[in-house]
């Protein structure tokens, strides 16, 4: 089954209907399609004219120097950018065949089909390991019988390769785990809402090398059934985990633009743009 938007939540079907009519224009062949995306923080423009088509069930890395707008870019795919006061977005983004910025599309519904893992592990401090994983379905008001919820928690902790380490301390606060375990808990929490796309915003930057390795391994496994977009400032990481890489760079005006988007191997060995080459050979950034 093609998971990419094959099962948009019911709430979205209505909003998606017009996009459906124009299915040729927005084919579900890509898991995420970004068309001339721009984003502002108040009067300051952070990114501009970014277009990307992300293939389903792949890992795509977004690389670039600090402040180039790579985090802003993926936050736009989750409609999380607009949470910041004064922030706004132009252009279009399709997740599966859902036009997520179409008028009438509920951001809450968009966020239920796109998962996000943040830079710093952020398990809910008042919740146990179990409750953290169950948080998505529970806080969204799903009435899931206890047994099914137990299964859901176990399944997703297994998907996040954390089950064996925490199966005896499901009742302990999530914040009691180590940093790397907390980040995998956050991955399990995001997976538990069964997203078609998982966005990761520098998920390893606060972690030690061993935890980083674990999470990279996990990403490769997860790519079997989830489309992953990872923002990273670590080029080795991008080359290890991703099949596709997008290089974003801020110009002199401070606005981030897409410089190059290609297969990871191609981009790292035979970059088409001299700026990409300069970046990956460490001449700036």
């Amino acid at each position: 089954m093609d998971r990419t938007g094959a099962r948009p939540p019911e709430a979205l079907l209505e909003a998606a209907a017009p996009a459906r009519g124009a299915a040729v224009a927005a084919p579900a062949a890509s898991a995420v399609r970004i068309d001339s995306l721009g984003a502002w923080y108040g009067a300051r423009k952070a990114i501009e004219g970014i277009s990307l088509a992300i293939a389903p069930r792949t890992v795509t890395a977004v690389i670039g120097p600090s402040g180039c707008g790579k985090s802003t870019l993926i936050r736009c795919v989750d409609r999380l950018h607009e949470v910041t006061p004064g922030a706004r977005v132009e252009g279009r983004v399709h997740v599966g065949d859902v036009d997520i910025y179409a008028p009438g599309t509920d951001p809450v519904a968009v966020r239920s089909m796109v998962g996000m893992v943040f830079q710093k592990p952020n398990p809910f401090p008042t919740m146990s390991v179990y409750e953290n994983v169950a948080a998505g379905p529970r806080l969204r008001g799903s009435r899931i019988p206890r047994g099914a919820l137990d299964d859901l928690v176990e399944r997703n902790l297994r998907r996040a390769a954390l089950w064996d380490e925490v199966k005896d301390k499901l009742g302990r606060p999530g914040a009691d785990l180590s940093g790397g375990q907390q980040q995998r808990l956050c991955i399990a929490r995001a997976l538990a809402t069964d997203p078609a796309v998982l966005l990761m915003d520098e998920p390893c930057s606060a972690l030690d090398p061993i935890s980083t390795y674990r999470i990279e391994e996990l990403m490769r496994e997860l790519a079997g059934d989830v489309t992953i977009v990872i923002v990273t400032h670590n080029m080795q990481q991008a080359s290890r985990v991703s099949e596709w890489t997008a290089f974003v760079l801020a110009g002199d005006d401070g606005i981030g633009r897409l410089v190059e988007f290609d297969a990871t191997e191609q981009l790292f060995t035979k970059p088409a743009d001299p700026r990409t080459e300069a970046y990956i050979t460490g001449r700036f950034g």
Partner: peptide, 22 residues
């Protein structure tokens, strides 16, 4: 922390539920 609120919103939880339950 802002990141706790964002974690909840990113799960597709409504703003009010986020305030009340997180």
């Amino acid at each position: 922390p802002l990141t706790i609120r964002e974690a909840s919103l990113a799960l597709g939880v409504h703003e009010w539920t986020t305030i009340l339950r997180v």
